[in-house]
Measured scan of single mutants.
Amino acid sequence: MALNTPQITPTKKITVRAIGEELPRGDYQRCPQCDMLFSLPEINSHQSAYCPRCQAKIRDGRDWSLTRLAAMAFTMLLLMPFAWGEPLLHIWLLGIRIDANVMQGIWQMTKQGDAITGSMVFFCVIGAPLILVTSIAYLWFGNRLGMNLRPVLLMLERLKEWVMLDIYLVGIGVASIKVQDYAHIQAGVGLFSFVALVILTTVTLSHLNVEELWERFYPQRPATRRDEKLRVCLGCHFTGYPDQRGRCPRCHIPLRLRRRHSLQKCWAALLASIVLLLPANLLPISIIYLNGGRQEDTILSGIMSLASSNIAVAGIVFIASILVPFTKVIVMFTLLLSIHFKCQQGLRTRILLLRMVTWIGRWSMLDLFVISLTMSLINRDQILAFTMGPAAFYFGAAVILTILAVEWLDSRLLWDAHESGNARFDD
């Protein structure tokens, strides 16, 4: 018995066209964080690309023209004298008006014999932002004059995390709450300039795509075929072959399989920071003279006294001054041990922890910024005066060393310790 099946006739004509040209192939790229070699397709503007294995951002879609970056830099340069030299806060102490600005706080630190601690604050609040705007201006002028731009481009990517104007702005709020127990506070004209400078700096850093600047100024022929001998440069993120001198053909720094002496430098910085954190938390970090009496505060006791007036601000200072430094030390110690013992479990967790400490590390400088600003506000000789204690130097040095330890660690070593050939990683 035959089955009668109805015929289905399409209502619209289906047209099949042959592909007349070869589909576009992607360029081969190595991930600078996990060293995976993959094919990167062509990316349009405002599109980002991520590593298929570790999800690290390979290409950032946010990109401004150099002219727009230069305009932002010149605007920031105009704001800087007002943000640093004009009063941020006014207080009335014992019937006398006192003005506080950024430069005055750094000068008070240096004047009291601790120039190293003052230079830490100076670099993060004044030096690094000033280098940022002058570097962008150098790129703008240098591109037109045919100057060598490689050193500036190499420095810009590392400079971003040292620009800490946003953290200093939080420190202004913390210092205001600490001082309000002794005097009446009012915002100064410099505060508005400083807030504007923070906003412009944040926007500029978020749109400063150094890798795209490398592509514009020093374009290189990408690798179009897969080759395990391809290496990625950690300076400019170019994937290719080393030249005859073993250097990256684009930025001219040595092109090595792994960062040289990464573990040794990381261990040295980490152990030194552990040693410095002990006096930083045991010795007094601030000293207040009130009517001839002397009151010393460690980091913890200062947080407890701050909690009596504002528990939320005390929580912020606790996280930045105690929780973050010790968390960074514990995480980095764990990561280094996992590399030495070739741990194969929990790779995803370790990668996330490394990215976390990379982002939060700079916030530990908050305590030094609060001390710097408070020193310029309260300084009335023996009637009422505020000065920093010996722990300030140890704390600042420990924070900087932990930042350097994270920067010096080559994250690809975590993958080397893991089993080879993993296309995915999980716990």
Rank of each mutant, 00 (worst) to 15 (best):
M1F: 00
A2V: 07
K13H: 15
G20Q: 11
G20K: 14
L23N: 10
P24L: 10
P24E: 10
D27N: 13
Y28F: 11
R30Y: 04
P32A: 11
P32D: 12
D35V: 02
L37A: 11
I43C: 12
S45D: 10
S45W: 05
H46E: 10
Q47M: 09
Q47H: 12
Y50T: 11
Q55H: 11
A56P: 00
K57I: 11
I58T: 06
G61N: 15
R62C: 13
S65L: 06
L69T: 06
A71D: 00
T75Y: 02
T75G: 07
L79Q: 12
M80P: 05
M80S: 10
P81S: 07
P81V: 05
F82M: 09
W84R: 15
P87M: 06
L88W: 02
W92A: 03
L94Y: 03
I96W: 03
I96D: 01
R97H: 09
I98W: 03
G105V: 03
K111E: 11
Q112H: 07
Q112N: 15
I116G: 07
I116Q: 09
G118K: 10
M120S: 03
M120F: 12
V121N: 05
F123T: 01
I126T: 05
P129E: 06
I131P: 00
V133D: 00
T134G: 13
A137T: 05
Y138F: 10
Y138A: 04
L139K: 01
G142H: 02
N143K: 14
N143Q: 08
R144M: 14
L145D: 00
G146Q: 03
G146E: 02
R150I: 05
M155Y: 08
R158S: 14
L159C: 03
E161T: 14
W162A: 01
V163A: 07
L165F: 07
L165D: 15
L165M: 13
D166M: 14
L169K: 03
L169R: 03
L169N: 03
I172W: 02
G173W: 07
V174M: 15
K178E: 01
K178I: 01
D181W: 01
D181E: 13
H184G: 12
H184I: 07
I185N: 03
Q186G: 10
Q186W: 10
G190F: 01
G190A: 03
L191E: 10
F192S: 07
V195Q: 05
V195W: 06
A196N: 14
V198W: 15
V198R: 14
L200R: 00
T201K: 12
T202C: 14
T204Y: 04
L205C: 12
S206F: 15
V210W: 04
E211L: 10
Y218W: 06
P219Y: 09
R221N: 08
P222A: 07
R225W: 07
E228C: 06
R231G: 04
R231E: 03
V232S: 13
V232N: 11
C233S: 02
L234N: 08
L234V: 06
G235W: 02
C236N: 00
T239A: 05
T239K: 02
R245W: 04
R245S: 07
R247F: 11
P249G: 05
C251Y: 00
L257N: 10
R258A: 04
R259D: 12
R260D: 04
H261N: 03
S262V: 03
K265V: 01
C266F: 02
A268F: 01
A268T: 04
L271N: 06
A272P: 01
S273D: 06
I274G: 11
L276K: 04
N281G: 08
N281E: 09
I285R: 00
I287Q: 04
I287V: 09
I288S: 01
I288P: 01
E296P: 09
D297R: 03
D297L: 04
I299D: 03
L300E: 03
S301N: 14
S301H: 07
G302K: 00
I303S: 14
S309M: 06
N310G: 06
N310C: 05
I311H: 12
I311F: 09
A312T: 14
V317Q: 00
F318P: 00
I319A: 07
V324Q: 07
P325H: 06
T327M: 10
T327V: 14
K328H: 00
K328V: 00
K328P: 00
V329G: 07
V329I: 08
I330P: 01
V331E: 03
H340I: 05
F341W: 11
C343Y: 15
Q345C: 12
T349I: 14
I351A: 13
I351F: 14
L352T: 12
L353E: 05
L354Y: 07
L354V: 13
R355F: 13
V357T: 11
T358S: 08
I360P: 00
G361H: 05
W363I: 02
S364R: 00
L366R: 00
D367A: 00
F369C: 03
V370W: 00
I371T: 01
I371R: 00
S372M: 15
T374D: 00
T374A: 07
L377Y: 15
N379I: 02
A385M: 04
T387L: 09
T387E: 03
A392S: 07
A392C: 08
A398L: 03
T402D: 10
A405E: 04
E407C: 07
L409I: 12
R412N: 00
L414C: 12
W415M: 09
A417K: 08
A417W: 11
N422L: 14
D426L: 13
D427F: 14
